[in-house]
């Protein structure tokens, strides 16, 4: 089912696995090598830099109308990722099913 595809560019399962492992390594490497580091977000650095460059700048001239607490925030980030994942999964499943039926 997977071998008789007309597409010569089809990756083998091995390449998919190698690719996934590479992604995991790239993401996990800093976590494993930099123990106890504070992954603070590059914005923190950037805002500190702004404060050094322009100490008089009042960045509070406008503030977010709503800033969720960290728990709510995590939930909303997860919600955002879930929405994206649903869209991708739905489309991928649809095409996969169509292809399987055609084969």
């Amino acid at each position: 089912m997977t071998t008789d595809t007309p597409n010569p560019q089809k990756f083998s399962k091995k390449i998919y696995i190698i690719g996934t492992v590479l992604i995991l390594i790239l993401v996990a490497m800093p976590l494993l090598t930099i123990r106890n580091a504070d992954f603070g977000g590059t914005d923190d650095l950037a805002s500190e830099t702004i404060e050094t460059l322009a100490p008089d700048y009042n960045y509070k001239w406008i503030t977010n109308w709503w800033a969720p607490e960290s728990e709510t925030e995590s939930a909303l980030f997860a919600l955002q990722a879930t929405a994206g994942g649903l869209l991708i999964g739905y489309a991928a499943g649809y095409w996969k099913g169509r292809k399987n039926r055609a084969d």
Partner: peptide, 22 residues
């Protein structure tokens, strides 16, 4: 939907990067 979903999911993922920030 696929292209949009991809942007949604990836831009929600905060991932640590090499310098100790993310």
């Amino acid at each position: 939907g696929m292209a949009g979903g991809f942007i949604f999911i990836l831009s929600a993922l905060k991932i640590p990067s090499v310098t100790g920030s993310s």
